[in-house]
Design a protein around this nucleic acid. Sequence first.
DNA 1: GCTGATGTTCCATTATTTGGAACTTAATTT
DNA 2: AAATTAAGTTCCAAATAATGGAACATCAGC
Lengths: 258, 258
Amino acid sequence: MAQARETGTLGKLMVLLDLVTHADTPLRFTDILARAGQPRGTLHRQLSHLVEEGLLELDGDGRYAPGLRLLDFAARSWARNEFRLVAEPHLSELQQATGETVHLGVLRGQSIIYLDKVEGRQPVRMYSQIGNASPCYCTGVGKAALSLLSRETLVDLLAGLSFTSFTASTHASAETLAAEIREIAEQGYAFDREEHEAGIRCVAAPVWSEDRTFIGGISVTGPAYRLSMELLRQWAVPVQLAAARIMEGMRVRLGPRR
Amino acid sequence: MAQARETGTLGKLMVLLDLVTHADTPLRFTDILARAGQPRGTLHRQLSHLVEEGLLELDGDGRYAPGLRLLDFAARSWARNEFRLVAEPHLSELQQATGETVHLGVLRGQSIIYLDKVEGRQPVRMYSQIGNASPCYCTGVGKAALSLLSRETLVDLLAGLSFTSFTASTHASAETLAAEIREIAEQGYAFDREEHEAGIRCVAAPVWSEDRTFIGGISVTGPAYRLSMELLRQWAVPVQLAAARIMEGMRVRLGPRR
DNA sequence: GCTGATGTTCCATTATTTGGAACTTAATTT
DNA sequence: AAATTAAGTTCCAAATAATGGAACATCAGC
């Protein structure tokens, strides 16, 4: 999960922040002490600094939870993201056309970070999904993104993966995954056959910016009982079309050939 | 905006992160240099560290933008926020009852940070508003929150405010604001009479947790042409009721008397 | 009032950050 | 095309901040 050096003042603090934000529940000082492998004095000061800065919050019971300042940072990051801004209308259109949930995600390291989500019905679970980092090897968007990588980059990335079997159909080895990615690269679209979550399928297409700042994809997702593989295959075309429009929008926005 | 010391390695880096995330557009190295008041060498290394950690991103044109890792942190912070989790059903109910947009916000320093938003119609602008820091002196939620503070705390906070006149009716001095806040404290609800944005009104009620971890409020917001002051006054009661239910939920959840 | 568990502070040592200057690269002008 | 200026990057001795072991609090339960 950690994507950088863990040395230097900032690096160490970010490891801590990761630890606390990724926990399921607020952590006591001792919980963190056990997991962080830092001396007590050091850890205490580090946590104090994070709290001072509003990155963590310390409740009345001495438990540490993610701080609200993180929200402020993220809201701005999200609102201004060019990729998302360009993609948004096309995502809505795709949602309208299919009636199912549409996602936009980008590859960051070994994870897919979801930048946007358009749902048809109901009071949307805001933030739910958005911002979440999901594995690249078992999501439609992830596999579509991987199909864009050069052979060498892909090999390096696959080598670093550890495969968790979320369902019976999750890829469990770099070999089978690599084979599917070759296929996806040829076809131009990818499926998620209930690989991340049982009962959930999707069809995805890769999206990239010419300068390769963004390597990602879009997908249409829904319950397996409603989305036959047959239907998903039919949707591959509109999904690819939407992807093409997003890329055209990026080209116009950022200027050609950068 | 900065809410803490600006010394220490982390403090200085957070000032930078603030600077870049609050800008309207990605910044070049030189832009940041001019605003940060750091020596070139120092600034360069600081930015490099932030980029290494994924907190900032450096695009092909040498411009710094907020990094996507911020989204990941925030998504978790938001998803787990107890206040939001407890409030959510009551916000939806209030939205149903009024048909207008409902907000939940907490006071952090001099700002209101919006934790949730429930809209009735249309594909929601996700993140729009959520996570955003707004001034406390010209929002319904803000004034409701201020009415909860002790006299001393309030005086200190008001002393530090600088009043920007967003509209003709925005409070322009601590005196008029203090007077209204006294009134709000008695009544138990607050209005925003187009003080933050022309044509937008709201009615808000304060919400707090017993341990004072959360000092905030909820509001029903809408266009002035649809929401007469008369109507808002009628809604004060259901808003206060929803606020009471949220507080009860918090009491149960966190346990009484902490 | 003792005991163990948890959390906080202290300070000499150690590691990191600092910042001025030198250096490289890109853009603009002559 | 050469000269000039601006923009970005690297270096390293000096200044600063972080480290971590131990001593010091605090508190719940016995």
